[in-house]
Every structure is written in structure tokens, then in C-alpha cells.
Design a binder for these strands. Sequence first.
RNA 1: GGGUGCUUAGCUCAGCUGGUUUAGAGCGCAUCCUUGACAGGGAUGAGGUCACCUGUUCGAAUCAGGUAGCACCCACCA
Length: 900
Amino acid sequence: MNTLATKYDPKAVESKWYEYWEQHDLFKSVPDEREPYTIVIPPPNVTGVLHMGHMLNNTIQDILIRHARMEGKNALWVPGTDHASIATEAKVVKRLAEQGIRKRDLTREQFLEHAWAWTHEHGGIILQQLRKLGASCDWSRTAFTMDEKRSQSVLRVFVDLYDKGYIYRGLRMVNWDPKAQTALSNEEVIYHDEKSKLYYLKYYVNGLTTLEAEAELREQGNVIHRDDKGYYAVVATTRPETIMGDTAMCVNPKDPKNQWLRGRQVIVPLVNRVINVIEDHYVDIEFGTGCLKVTPAHDPNDYMLGKTHNLESIDIFNPDGSISTESPLYVGMDRMECRKVIAADLQQAGLMEKVEDYENKVGYSERNPDTAVEPRLCKQWYLKMKHFAEIALPPVMNDELKFFPPKYKNIYKVWMEGIQDWCISRQLWWGHRIPAYFLPTENPDDEVFVVALTEEEALAKARQIKGYENIQPDELKRDENALDTWFSSWLWPISLFDGINNPGNEEIKYYYPTSDLVTAPDIIFFWVARMVMAGYEYIGEMPFRNVYFTGIVRDKLGRKMSKSLGNSPDPLMLIDKYGADGVRMGMMLSAPAGNDILFDEALCEQGRNFNNKIWNAFRLVKGWEVADIEQPEHSRLAVQWFHAVLDNTLTEIKDLFSKFRLNEALMAVYRLFWEEFSAWYLEIVKPAYQQPIDAKTMDATLYFFDTLLRLLHPFMPFITEELWQHIAERNDGESIMYARIPEPGQPDTALLSAMTQAKEIVGGVRNVRKSKNLPNREELALQVVGEFSNPLAPIIVKTAGLSGIECVDTKDATAAAFLVGTTEFAVPLGNNINVEEEIAKLEADLKYAQGFLATVEKKLSNERFVANAPEAVVAAERKKQADAQSKIATLTEAIAALRR
RNA sequence: GGGUGCUUAGCUCAGCUGGUUUAGAGCGCAUCCUUGACAGGGAUGAGGUCACCUGUUCGAAUCAGGUAGCACCCACCA
């Protein structure tokens, strides 16, 4: 009869429909009179490939977009990619190295040519992969953070912020990435606990052969070291390789252990440089020996000490982390190598007192995770952040701009309140080149520069500076540095609608503020916080109304997915295996809002199985022939009941969507389809084998199926589109994408509770059937002891396989009994009954009921409960008591009857 | 060193402002079911002293305080 395969095959279906959607421009949005619903994609790295984090993130965005579209909103999802300055440049450098080309041998222009070639070669692969997932982005708007419009926006904003006085150049200790050879922002440093060593080094006191009153000094608490070479101080350090940069030793003036060192000089081991012992309260008396070596060029704290005490600064590192010619020793050696070698040399020379195991935090470069960040003194461009924190904090705290889950509000607040200026310059070529132009000066340490959008403007500005009235274009030297990638990303919700270059244009007015932002929490500071800042600064309004933070995708053991662990499945392989709909569902089933998600491939299998269930339900319905026959009573009731269920679930789903509880919304639809629709509704209305169905029931069933497909579509776009074409009338170019999800009506709660009771009765009968090993096809009689009325009785008769329901005063002596509520039901079994078994079963029920009654009566016998609890609560307890008593009576009677 | 969040069936999680029969779901598990949508399926069922302690209350998984474990964020202690 059915020509359709018993298994759903997503492969052909998915590519067919994606093409159809694209061909008919169904993802496209232009401003109109409808309410807009906008999402801007967190732009993935242009040369990246899809990983599980993207899958999760983009599945969620697509669900939200499709849902909004089906609510009748003008839904726009803008796609794009990020130039990912440091990451992409690193990849290009690596590829060039493989070809034997060194970056430093290339000019900026040559390097950029290679970078663009790489971008064009690999760029956009990830956007193709998103299509496989079903992402309904308006591809005609695909943007790139370094395309013409976005670049213009970035430069304009830089110039504007400079003119407003927010951007400045500063000489600071920055976080330096020796591999990428660039400065980083604080946020780009990731700290890890590390097992390292604490080296205790001997710094001999210069020219001290005899210490006067040594005994007395010891008496006062001084810790004095001495060996055959003389007196020495002990300094504890984790970084012995920096001793070549030592220019002082520091003690706390209040430290009783080190009083004897005050005002003296010590000799740096191996280096033999004589340095002063300085005093500062900064030094922790408790740590190590209380003696601190001071290396102003290589530690932020030492830098501060150097400033206050006017110390010399010796920079012993080259930008790549090797030892520079400023050092008397180890020139050219890598810093990590040098640490090992110098430790051995110190040991050898008898200059090492001891070595201890130690655990400390070491900062690593976010983009070069194996490279420890080196503090380095250099001049960089900074953005003052105080003003931006002031405009971006309140709207989040007062929930104008909502975070889901809200726990991120606090994290956001703490960061904003302790905000530091943002280092925005990077010593990279791949990125937006800083629009600053330096003018020639007498002294190379002096800086005179102008900031301007174009060279012409720069020249004009330069000529207004006293002494440069006649400066020529070729005398202007543009800054070589690029901007931090996030300096372009923070404009994304604005720049996508060209709101910087073309303020107040129709698109920015219509689509901004965007509706929801879906992103991972690890970029809350990098990106989310800064977009809020830019939004208020440039549009005067929030960039998005809600931020939904996804969790981190982990494997089912809770480990982060990583290449080295090999626990990260390839998303495209998964799609190939389970279909995009199955994978989307697998992602969503494991993604409770805000928690990390433990991804298990078995969930994709569950998703695939669900597709199959939908497919086969469709096969069933499609196989029915409609005939001009009367609608059976059970079908009429089933239709009524399913309307009520639908109203109920629609309300629930609407609420869940508003709270971003998408996995619960999906579970609600899942159960609606599988339990209520397939297991109950279809089983009730299903005609007998090869019998036709009446038109009324068929129409209702198709309507229900249509509605269910609509509810499922945001989660599983492909299979729903495939089936919708058969279920609903439609013309070419139309799509379920634009079908409306119905507004929920008021559910008929009386009918719903009647069905709940009906299901329990049916369950009771089936239980009897199973325990007595009665065949499913054999019709059974059902007796009800006493009064019984349930409007859905015909449904009970059909689904329990009954010959009828009969009210009796006394049930058959040989019947298997069960209770639903306080009513006793019985299935007469003739000789089939095992009296002992029946009694045992009823006694178990009785015991439960008695236990329950005891708890209720305990409550009711508590005078204070009766006196203090609200009347309704007391009444409810009385009802429970009465019900339990009646149950006990029924059970006692039933057991007695069996015993007779 | 500070801060935030979490701890409920074997697993992953719901349980909103205390009272919805002595706590729910999905998966998994057990038992039974071969023709008639679907074994990627159907039916039935077993599984929990709500991390621990002490309070508040007539009443606590739910509120408060504390303990333990886990996770994350922040911080310049060598």
C-alpha cells in the first residue's frame, strides 16, 4: 500500500530544500512595516572551519530566527566573518614558513597579498558549512570585518575617538606575545596554574668581609647568611633568567630578617653587577626570604618599583623572547632554554642555595596557547575605558538589556567596575592599519603625529601644526601597527547596517537595536561588553535587547572538546550520518540554557529516530482513504481532546521561547508529537486494517499534523518542509518557513483531566493484560464498582480493547482489580485468576494508602496547622484524608471479597 | 587570595514567589510483543532518606546560616 520507504533518508531532502529556499530568496529581509526581528551572527574566523561550538551557537540562532519568522516578524539573520587579525596572521606566517619564506623578508604589501590569497582560498568555507546545518541567513548581506564598509567604519571610529580625547599613546608594561611578536590586551592573556620551581639565589653583599655586631643583629631577628666567600642575601625567584636585567634588590624596611641589608649593595650572581639594596613596603615580608630582585624591564611590579626608585631598566629580551645584546650572558638563547641553562650554571657556580617545587600562575597568549606572555615595556595605543564603562553598565544592571542566564550580570559588573584602558594596537599587518601619521622630529624619541581618515586630511592637519606648515606628503609616515580585531568586532551590530558611515540610514533605523545575541560566555568582555559600549556611544542605544549565553560544548565525560584529546566530532560527519535535523536536535536536547552542554552522539541518534517517527506517522496518515462515512464517537472526542492538548502545549512553548529555554520547548514538542499525537491520538482515530476514514477526522488530523510541523520547523527545518508540501496546499515558492505558528486558545481543562483519568484506566487494563498474559486482540470486559462517568469512555473502550464498560454494585469474584483515584475497576477473568497474587497486589496498594493517610492525619491532628494554614490548604488536606479513607475501605473490601 | 553559580532517579536535567495525593521528564535499564505507520518501533514496569548540618515555619527539594565537593570569573605577591 505505502510506496514510501519505512525509513526517512535526510540526504536528498536536505540539499533539495536548502536550494529551494535560496532560489526563492526566502531568507532575504528588507525593511517593511512588520516588526523586525534581527540577529547578527558572531562572525567566525574567516579561515576557520565549523566546530561543535559553532554548531550549537548557530543552531540556536536559526531556531530563534525561524521561530520569529513564523510569528510573522520580519526576521533577519546577518552572516559574516571576522578577519581574526592575530590568528589569521599566525596561520599565514606558518604557511609562508613552510614554503621557506620569512615574514621579515617581505614588505607589508607582499605579506598582505599572501594573506588575502589565503583568505580567498579558505574564506567562506565555514559559511558553506553553515548552509549544511540549515542556517537561514540572508546571504546577500554577507559581510567581512575587513571589507570596504567595515574598514571605513573602523577608521572613522578611531579618528572620532581620538578627536574626543579617548585614544592616546602610552608607554607601559604590556602583555607581549613573543611568538606573534605583538602586544596583547589584558583580556587576551589566559592564566594557567603551573608546576614550576622556586630558585633561591645567592646575592653576595658587596665588600662586606666582617659584619659588626653580628651576634646582636641575629639576636634582633636578622637572618644572616655567610659562607667561605662572604656574606650573602638569598633571593627567591621563579625566573632566574631575568637576573641579567636586575638593577636593584628590594627589602621591606620593616622586615626584621633583613635589617642588616639596609643601605648595602649586593652582587648579581653570574652577572657580577653591583646593585643597591632599596627599601619598599611593597615587598611581602612573609614570602620567600623577604628579598626581592628587581627587574624593571620584565615585571610590572618591578617596573613600578623602578619608577619610584629611579632605577635603571635593562631590557634583556628581544621581541621574539630570546636574550638580547643588552645582556652580558646567553645572548641569542631562547628565554625558556636560558632558564634551564642558567639554573644549571648557578648550581655549578655554587650560587644556588636551593630549589623548591612551586605552583604559580603563568599567563599565556590566547591565540598562541603554548606561548607564555612576556611583560614588555613599549609604546602602544590605548583607549580610555572609564567613560565607556559608565555608559554600558547601567542598562545591563537594570535589565533594559537582559542577560540569559542572569548570573553573567555580576561578572559583567565586576569587569566594568575594575576596567582598565584597552591596548588597541597590535604589531601585525593583517588588520585595520591605524590611521595615524607621524611627522619628522629632531629627536627620534619625540613624537608628533596626526590622526585622520585619509592621507589628504592628515596632510592638511599636519600643516596646521606650528613648524610643519610646508610639510610634504612623503614626509608623513603612517603608523605600521594594526588594530586589535575586537576594535572592529565591537562595531558589528552597527557597521553591518552601515550606521557609522551613513548614520540614521533606513536600515540602521529599522534593524537596530537587534533583538537577540547568541554567543559563548568566554567572549563576554572581548565582544559583548564592548558592543554595548559602542552601541551607546554611536547610536545612543543598546545593540541588542537580549544576550543568550550558550554553554561550552564538552564531551559526555565533561571534558572540553579539543583536537589533542580527539574527542571533538566533525560536525559535517555527524550531519552526514544523522542528517542536519537529527544533529540539530541532538545539540538542542543536550543544551539546557546557560549550562555547559555534554554532547553525546547518542543524542543525534535520538534526533534521527524522532525524524523517523515523524516520517512514519506521515506514512500512516497518507495511507488513509477517505470515505463518506459517519465519524465514530471516539474519533470525534479525540479531535476535541487533541485541540485542548495543542492549546496547552502552544501556551507552554510560547512561554519557554520567551525565556530562551529552547531545550525544554523542544522536549515539549517532542512529547506532544510522540506521546500525545502518535501514541494516543493516532491510535484512537486509526481505522481498522484496510478500512477508510471519515472526512471530518481526516481533516482534523491533517490540521493537527500541519500545526505540529509548524511547531517543529524551527528545530528541524528540513523534514518539516518535506512533509509540509504533502500535508498543506501551497504554491511554488511558498514555504513552511512563513507559515504561522497558531496563537494558543484557552485549553479545555475538563477534557484534559478526563483524558488523564482515561489514560490511567487504559493503563490499568493493559497492566492486567500483561500480568495475565492475555493477548492484545482479545476483547476484555471492564467493570466499575459504583458510579462512573467519563465523557471519553468510547476512547477507553477502543484503546484498552474492551467489549464495554459496565457499572456494577459488586464486581466478579474472579476479577483483577485496580484503583484509579478512589474508584475501583475490575477485569473479570473467569478461571484465569490467581487469588494470592491479586491479594498481594491489593495489599501493596492498601499499605501505600494507609501510609499516605497517616501523613495526612498527622498534619490534620496538628492544631497549629489547622489554626494557621490557609483554609484552602486545610480543606485540601481534608479531601485527601477522605479520599484515602474511601480508598482504604474499597481495598479492604476487595481483599475481603477475594478471601471469601 | 576574593567573588559567583551548582549539588534532585544509572546519565542529562525540570521543579518560578514554601502547601498540586509520601518529587517529574528524556535517555538508559528490566519484562513482554514478529503479520496491518514505525524494532531507528509498541506495551508495561523498576529506580530518588532532593549533598550534609543547624535554624525559620503549622508546613522546607523550595527560605536563612554553616560544612563539604564541583565548576566558572576576577586579582601584579616574586
